[in-house]
């Protein structure tokens, strides 16, 4: 009897009708060589099917923007804190109606700004 050959792959892929499947399985039961070949193609098939499905690069598919990040609450508060610091440095402490809480770095920077005669002149301060 001839060996199964490509019927083995068709068996693995569910591409045989019930009659052909029964005949193929009956042959396999008594044929060591076909069982070995089945194991071989099955391992290659498994290796291919286990390959990871890759993501498409961002922007390639319309309406699917992978990699797009929305701002997390932690990031929003970090940006707000940075904005407050910048505002504090630009407006300066002691401006009417403002109260800023500066961290050490802000205080240090402000001390430099206040102590700088050039900036003091620009701001209209009298030394």
């Amino acid at each position: 009897m001839t060996h199964l050959g490509d019927l083995l792959s068709a068996l693995l892929d569910g591409e045989l009708d019930s009659g052909a499947r029964r005949r193929t399985e009956a042959h396999l039961a008594g044929c060591e060589s076909c069982r070995l070949e089945l194991a071989r193609v099955e391992s290659a098939r498994g290796a291919l099917r286990r390959l990871p499905m890759l993501e498409t690069p961002p922007g390639l598919i319309p309406g699917v923007r992978r990699g797009r990040r929305f701002l997390s609450p932690a990031r929003v508060s970090a940006i707000a804190a940075m904005a407050a610091l910048v505002a504090a440095l630009v407006i300066g402490p002691g401006a009417p109606g403002t109260a800023f809480q500066l961290d050490d770095l802000g205080d240090q920077h402000d001390a430099r700004v206040v102590g700088d005669p050039g900036i003091a002149t620009f701001r209209g301060d009298r030394p």
């Binding site: 050959g5 490509d6 792959s9 193609v41 290659a44 290796a47």
Partner: peptide, 16 residues
């Protein structure tokens, strides 16, 4: 199709 798939898998198995 069937024979190409089968032979392709057999070649891959050899290489792997």
């Amino acid at each position: 199709v069937r024979s190409r798939i089968h032979r392709g898998r057999a070649m891959l198995r050899e290489l792997l």
